[in-house]
Design a binder for these strands. Sequence first.
DNA 1: GTCTATATCGGGATAGAC
DNA 2: GTCTATCCCGATATAGAC
Lengths: 226, 226
Amino acid sequence: MTAAKITSKSEETGRRILDAALELFREEGFDGATMRDIAAKAGVATGAAYYYYPSKDAIVLAFYELSCQEMQPIIEAALARCGGLEARLRELIRVKLEYFARNRAVLRGLVKNGADPNHPLSPFSSETKSIREIDLAWFQKILIDCGVRIPRDLEPYLPEVLWLFQMGVIYFWLADESRGQSRTARLLELGAKTITGLLKLSGLPLTRPLRKVALELIEIVKGEAQ
Amino acid sequence: MTAAKITSKSEETGRRILDAALELFREEGFDGATMRDIAAKAGVATGAAYYYYPSKDAIVLAFYELSCQEMQPIIEAALARCGGLEARLRELIRVKLEYFARNRAVLRGLVKNGADPNHPLSPFSSETKSIREIDLAWFQKILIDCGVRIPRDLEPYLPEVLWLFQMGVIYFWLADESRGQSRTARLLELGAKTITGLLKLSGLPLTRPLRKVALELIEIVKGEAQ
DNA sequence: GTCTATATCGGGATAGAC
DNA sequence: GTCTATCCCGATATAGAC
């Protein structure tokens, strides 16, 4: 009757299939890993794998959800280690990349369908909405008392902007073939600095007309993710 | 012996298969259209379709190349109609979207693999390099005598930046389900205005430190496409 | 060189027996 | 809840007609 023993056999099999899939994705890439191989590696029949995950995509989604869950304490610890908007923005994204480092091929499978909002695996779809919201909350958090004066009108939109920046970094990282993805590390560093710099500039009266345009631009983009 | 009659039967069949494929992509989406259907619609055997195009991806690539070719005069005319950086940037991208309007599903097939630089269909791959270069030349052109004073150090990087902006707009457009993609139209309008505004600001001494950071950022990103 | 016909294979997905 | 058998499709290969 202990909580630990609630993990039924069913749950365990599902997890075993997920683990087998992740390992194969790493070895063979998303397309290279077949459902037959995944099932075989997990010690079940192909049909059984489909009983647990209605599609190969569903496995990726499950991985994404599990990752999000596992990353929460990691992110919390990372943000406790540093202060200021620039450093925290950088760290928030950096720990995610670090966590995903082994599974770049899996993430590629996820991002592939980003341009199709109806696709369940799109980072903008309704299926991934809860994950997106958890993410957004972190960006919201690092904007509070961050040491940078932020114009009132810009404030409500910034979490989404930072989230979009994160997506851009991840996209770049997936395509980055430099050793240890060092180019992405540099990109993240400079990107965080640029964003913080732009935010500081945005407070100046001189930039007001442009800020109004940019604000409207953000509003249009934001509409997309609902 | 006339030049018009050089279009051999082979060329025509290839074109017929391409047209059949495009129509099916529009009706069924990229994944929904099968090679069997495409061949049947073109009135040839499956093997013949493979004789002309080694894979379904190859059809998309052929479409991409044909589009690029057909669009050259359209772009030229569009740029002749208007002046100034903001208007020309907007028009340059707008006519492309207009041209691709019927084939959004096909473009989705193309963009899907953007995160994998080794994939032949990635917009960053070597297979699509010549298309990319033709594109870049247009962005280079609209930057000349555009009426906006551009800092010397920024200048050589701007074509790539504008090209990346274009890719972002296209990506948004592919996911945009609003009527007639009206949101994308607005996005393009505001985006062009924001970029022009930022460029104007970038000339001010005040923005110099930030400009240096942004410059380095661009350099990192640019390295990717070679 | 251009194409048909056909056979075969591997992989995603499903139905139905157990 | 699990497995077997099966279907469909993309892709490849080949033999041969024209």
